[in-house]
Simulated scan of single mutants.
Amino acid sequence: MTQKIGFVGLGAMGLPMASNLIAAGYQLTVYNRTASKAEPLLAHGAHRAARAGDVARPGGIVVSMLADDASLEALVAGEDALAANLGPDGIHVSMSTVSPAITRKLARVHAERESTMIAAPVFGRPNAAAAKKLWICTSGPADAKARVRPLLEAMGQGIFDFGEDPDAANVVKLAGNFMIAASFEAISEALTMVQKSGVDPVAAIEMLMTTLFASPVYQGYGAMIAHRKFTPAGFRLPLGLKDIDLVLKTAAEANVPMPAASLLRDRFLSAIAKGRADLDWSAIALGAADDAGLKVSR
Rank of each mutant, 00 (worst) to 15 (best):
M1I: 06
T2V: 13
Q3N: 12
K4V: 14
I5T: 04
F7C: 08
F7Q: 09
L10F: 07
G11E: 08
A12K: 13
M13L: 13
G14S: 09
K37Y: 10
P40R: 00
L42F: 05
A43D: 14
A49T: 08
A49W: 07
G60F: 05
S64Q: 11
S64G: 12
M65D: 11
A67Y: 01
A67E: 13
A70C: 08
S71V: 11
A74W: 04
L75E: 13
G78R: 03
D80W: 00
A81R: 12
L82N: 10
L82Q: 06
N85D: 10
D89V: 01
G90V: 12
S94A: 15
V98H: 09
I102Q: 03
T103R: 01
R104S: 13
L106K: 04
V109T: 15
H110W: 05
A111V: 09
S115V: 11
A120I: 07
P121S: 12
G124W: 00
P126S: 07
P126L: 05
N127D: 15
A128Y: 01
A129Y: 07
A129L: 08
A131L: 08
K132V: 14
L134W: 03
I136Y: 05
C137L: 15
R149H: 13
L151D: 10
E153S: 10
A154R: 00
Q157K: 14
I159Q: 02
D167H: 08
K173R: 06
G176E: 07
G176V: 07
G176T: 02
N177T: 09
N177G: 12
F178H: 11
I180F: 00
A186H: 06
I187T: 02
S188K: 04
V199D: 07
A204P: 02
A204C: 10
A204E: 00
A204F: 03
M207F: 10
L208M: 14
T210A: 15
T210G: 12
L212D: 06
V217P: 00
Y218F: 13
G220K: 00
A223V: 03
A226N: 07
F230G: 02
A233G: 09
F235I: 09
L239A: 12
G240P: 11
D243T: 05
D243W: 03
D245E: 15
L248M: 06
T250W: 02
T250N: 11
A251Q: 06
E253G: 11
M258F: 06
A261H: 03
L263G: 14
R265E: 14
R265K: 15
R265W: 11
F268N: 07
S270Q: 13
K274I: 03
A277D: 15
S282R: 03
I284Q: 05
L286I: 10
L286P: 08
A288L: 07
A288G: 04
D291G: 13
D291F: 03
A292K: 01
L294Q: 14
